Computed example of a mutant assay.
Amino acid sequence: MTRLVMFLALFISNLAIAQDEIYTGYFSNKALSGYDTVAYFTDHKPVEGSDKFVTEYKGADWYFASQEHLDMFKAEPEKYAPQYGGYCAWAISAKSDFASADPKKWAVVDGKLYLNYDEKVKQMWDQNQALHIKQADANWPALIRKK
């Protein structure tokens, strides 16, 4: 029994470390749960993408509401992709750990898109965005190297 517990602890620990660079959830390969990442910048709100306008980037499928948005993303993916791979910006900052993010809990700060886990977490992140961005920027490279 002890060996089983140790095996499970090691297995779960390794799963926690082996995160994809882009958050897609467990049962999908959709970045941002299929929301159009360009729309945050052009429409200033979350807009669901269409399976008519899809591209692959960094191992994830990105959906867009229009051909125009798809073309904009393809031309400058780093400009439109969310920071920290679409994981919760507060978790990357405050916990130096991965957490899922809700594409409806977002902010564009200095031309960059940030997502958060839920409304409560977003409120905490909003209290000091600059500090959280600075901390997350410092934490992110080490988290990705753990892959």
Rank of each mutant, 00 (worst) to 15 (best):
Y23V: 04
K95P: 07
D137Q: 14
P103T: 07
W125V: 04
A89L: 05
H69Y: 06
Y63S: 07
V109G: 12
Y80P: 10
D118F: 09
W62F: 13
K30A: 06
K120S: 10
K134V: 04
A101D: 01
A142T: 13
A39G: 11
M6A: 10
Y23G: 00
D118W: 08
V47T: 14
A89P: 09
F73C: 05
L113A: 09
E68M: 10
D102S: 10
K122I: 00
T2H: 12
V47I: 15
N139I: 12
W140M: 10
F98Y: 12
T2C: 06
I144E: 10
K104R: 14
S93L: 05
V47S: 14
L70W: 00
L10N: 05
F7A: 03
D61Q: 14
T55P: 12
V47N: 14
S50V: 06
E68R: 13
C88G: 02
V109W: 15
E21T: 11
D20M: 03
Q123K: 15
Y117D: 02
F41G: 13
H132M: 11
G86V: 02
S33E: 09
S28W: 04
F41S: 13
L15G: 01
A81Y: 06
A138Y: 15
I17W: 12
L113F: 11
V54I: 13
K58M: 13
L113D: 04
E56K: 14
Y63I: 08
A136R: 15
G34I: 04
V108G: 15
I144Y: 10
G85A: 02
N29M: 03
A99W: 03
E76Q: 15
L115E: 02
R145T: 10
Q127P: 01
Y80G: 08
K58D: 08
D36H: 12
A18F: 02
L113R: 11
H132D: 08
N128Y: 00
C88W: 00
A9Q: 02
A91C: 00
I17K: 15
G59T: 03
D118P: 03
F41M: 14
Y114L: 09
E21Q: 13
D126T: 00
N128E: 03
D43C: 12
T37W: 02
A99T: 01
I12H: 02
Q123H: 08
Y23I: 10
F11C: 00
P82A: 01
